[in-house]
Design a protein around this nucleic acid. Structure first.
Length: 270
DNA sequence: AGCCTTTGACCAGCG
DNA sequence: TCGCTGGTCAAAGGC
């Protein structure tokens, strides 16, 4: 990559913002599709596009952070497909762990039969499922606390859990390691076209995912408003990301047509 | 009213 | 056995 370090930092920041914006749009579409009663649910049209855009942006983040080419990292990144219950396909799985010991080798043993998988993401709180936080712990050797979540529908027998650990805060954009344990047995994934989230569920998505997370608010682009304030995409950041995408395309470093994706996304949102 | 987060206490695995 | 530490519980308060 020919970019200087400063350019690379800016690029990482912009892609991160773009990632956040798309996540906001995804939430907006979920709201609109559940409330609007449209003939063709908008999320059915937009979902594949979102998945592709998020996957591309996430790959870009990995490439720019590590300095490793996309081709080189492709073999290391496993994209979770739809049968993996706890998240959509845009996060990158760094390991799959079905053994009994936690990553630091010291903590409690995991129960036999519990499977887990680890994801690195900049958006750990938005994965299409509803989670209830049940604990928060300062971990020795880590600058950041660890948060414990279980599925909101645990009382219906869903044993899914997740553990969110912030791993870095470089370039004003925190990065998290998310460990999922057990598959969801509930049927309340908010992105599922067949499900119809209750109003209370939708409000909790907004409540939990962004507005209540201080470190996410810190680096949220200033050009758009919060979802529960009735808002949408900010032009300034769309343009920033658009320019960034165009620059990358000009340099011939990127295979993906981010420019096209952005136009499509803005069209859906407007 | 119901569901959420926060937070201190407690439990349990490991060295 | 004991101390350390990660994981979970549950009461309290907020939205």
């Amino acid at each position: 990559m020919r970019n200087s370090n400063r350019e690379q930092e800016a690029a990482i920041r912009e892609v991160g913002r773009g990632y956040d914006i798309i996540k906001q749009l995804q939430g907006l579409l979920q709201l609109k599709s559940s409330n609007g009663g449209e003939a063709i649910p908008m999320h059915e049209l937009a979902e594949p596009l979102f998945r592709e855009a998020l996957q591309s942006l996430n790959h870009a983040l990995f490439i720019m952070r590590s300095g490793v080419s996309k081709a080189e990292i492709k073999s290391e990144i496993v994209v979770i497909e739809s049968d993996s219950p706890a998240h959509s396909s845009h996060e990158s799985v760094t390991s799959y762990d079905s053994n009994k010991r936690l990553e630091n080798g010291r903590g409690k043993r995991r129960r036999v039969g519990e499977s887990s998988w680890i994801i690195n993401t900049s958006m750990p709180y938005v994965d299409g499922y509803q989670w209830r936080k049940y604990g928060d712990k300062k971990i020795s050797g880590s600058d950041f606390p660890r948060s414990y979540f279980r599925c909101t529908y645990k009382d219906q027998g869903c044993q899914a859990k997740k553990l969110v650990q912030q791993t870095s805060n470089k370039l004003d954009m925190p990065f998290f390691q998310v460990t999922y344990t057990n598959k969801h047995t509930c049927n309340f994934q908010n992105t599922s076209p067949s499900s119809s989230p209750q109003p209370s569920a939708l409000s909790s998505i907004q409540h939990n995912s962004i507005n209540h997370i201080p470190h996410l608010q810190e680096y949220k682009p200033s050009g758009y408003q919060l979802l529960n304030q009735g808002s949408c995409l900010g032009d300034a950041h769309a343009n920033n990301l658009n320019n960034f995408a165009s620059t990358c395309m000009d340099e011939g470093n990127w295979e993906w047509d981010l420019d096209f994706l952005l136009k499509e996304l803005v069209g859906f949102a407007s």
